[in-house]
Design a protein around this nucleic acid. Structure first.
Lengths: 248, 248
DNA sequence: CGACGTTTTGAACAAGGTCAAGTCGTGTGG
DNA sequence: CCACACGACTTGACCTTGTTCAAAACGTCG
């Protein structure tokens, strides 16, 4: 799994790949210039910890590429993933010094960071920034609540199907457009990471994935490369309404 | 349980009991006056549904008194509570028309409502409002994530202890000051509502409450009146760090 | 080839769920 | 005033789901 060390992406904000989805989405050219002045890139290798829970955080930032996780751990070692960080997601909380969670790079990860103080100051005088952050936070809150239903009430099989459908959907939306044929993607998570996300053990995750494969809901090439022949079927397995609960 | 019908509270914002914690907390007198013009009170009796999931919502608002719940339901009837609404909590999402959840009054409930359009317009030109809402939303997100750990990784006994400690803490903070003696409060939830919050069945909730009583972690008078002789002990039972994970 | 991390599979076990009585407390009607 | 009906709660016996512990298979890298 040893790869080239991730390269610092030398983007101008103007041609940033996630510009229209990130916290800066509503900023005008002047505001972008201002951001440009306080931003810098950091990159992490797969497996690296970005921040430990409780650590002082002197920056906030946006995931540019790669995948990260937000996890909470109890003293005895039980861990629960509480968030998946995909490109354009925001990390850190303005107005708070310490991180409440462990942030870990699951794949190689590039982040666009802003020193916290200057960013906070800019937020105070830039409604475009705080409005967008509010919108993103509300979306995350909805996602967290949807996940509460998954954790609290779904069976192991439904949990796996839910995770697969979320990853499939997010992946499809990155590749813009709805291909509507069979969905194909690579799982960015190990069985253990999936277990931590779903509140299961890795053995149960493995068994349920095998079962979904056996039942033709998914196809696997190797351990990670997934094909979903019928997305509606997967949604049914997830116990979700087939419309995906879309809201304005 | 038949009581007087809840009376509409005729508050001036200036002497509103939850003014310093609600979405209007940062507003100055002029802004309060502006809010005053678009606000009105609604009240609900215990058990009434405030909004059904999917329904169009033409208002947003703040809980003034009483307790409500936010729940999600699957087609087959499994339900999961995704939020507890206490005084000063905000209901509704600016920028979205439909409610994503069922909102139910658990006790008699009074809400301070704003028509959605005017409120959204005011938010656009009133940073004090959107900044405060951002802060509150971030707090809710943290609470939701903490709850994900409860749902995903804690045992039934730990779940009950977690719920009790949250209710106890919230209750103590309303009665301002830290009495530091034994905590005493009334459970605002039925066993079934607790089960829906914790991802358990009501039988398991009942058994675990009996067990905590038997072990002296809590005392009960009747079914709902709870005394916590030793809060630290309760926190241990909840599997939490005894410091309560306080962050700035 | 051999070592290591990841994943799969099996068998025994336990936590919590399900189903079924029963209790308790309160309000209602005879 | 008492009987009883109703809803909220408790308790018991049994069963299912997912966990635990253990071993083996797989794949990649050195």
């Amino acid at each position: 799994m040893l790869k080239d060390k991730p390269v610092i992406a030398p983007h101008e904000c103007v041609d940033c790949p996630i510009r229209h989805r990130a916290v800066c989405a509503r900023c005008d050219v002047n505001e972008l210039e201002e951001l440009e002045a306080i931003k810098y890139y950091r990159s992490y290798e797969a497996g690296q910890t970005v921040i430990w829970s409780g650590d002082r955080m002197d920056f906030v930032g946006t995931v540019v590429s790669g995948i990260g996780t937000l996890t909470q751990t109890m003293e005895d070692g039980r861990t629960q993933m509480v968030g998946l960080l995909l490109p354009s997601d925001f990390v850190g909380r303005p107005g708070r010094d310490g991180s409440a969670y462990d942030v870990v790079a699951t794949t190689d990860l590039v982040m666009c960071c802003f020193r916290k103080r200057p960013f906070e100051q800019m937020m105070e005088r830039t409604p475009h920034l705080s409005q967008r952050l509010l919108e993103m936070t509300l979306d995350e809150l909805d996602a967290a609540r949807e996940w509460m239903l998954v954790l609290g009430r779904k069976t192991a099989r439904e949990k796996i199907a839910s995770l697969l459908s979320i990853v499939a959907r997010r992946d499809a939306s990155l590749k813009l457009g709805v291909p509507d044929g069979p969905l194909v993607f690579d799982l960015p998570l190990t069985r253990e990471a999936m277990a931590d996300y779903l509140g299961l053990t890795l053995e149960t995750v493995s068994r349920q994935i095998s079962a979904l494969k056996r039942d033709g809901v998914i196809h696997l090439e190797g351990k990670r490369h997934v094909t979903i022949p019928d997305f509606t079927r997967l949604m049914e397995e997830a116990g979700d309404d087939s419309d995906g609960g879309m809201l304005v």
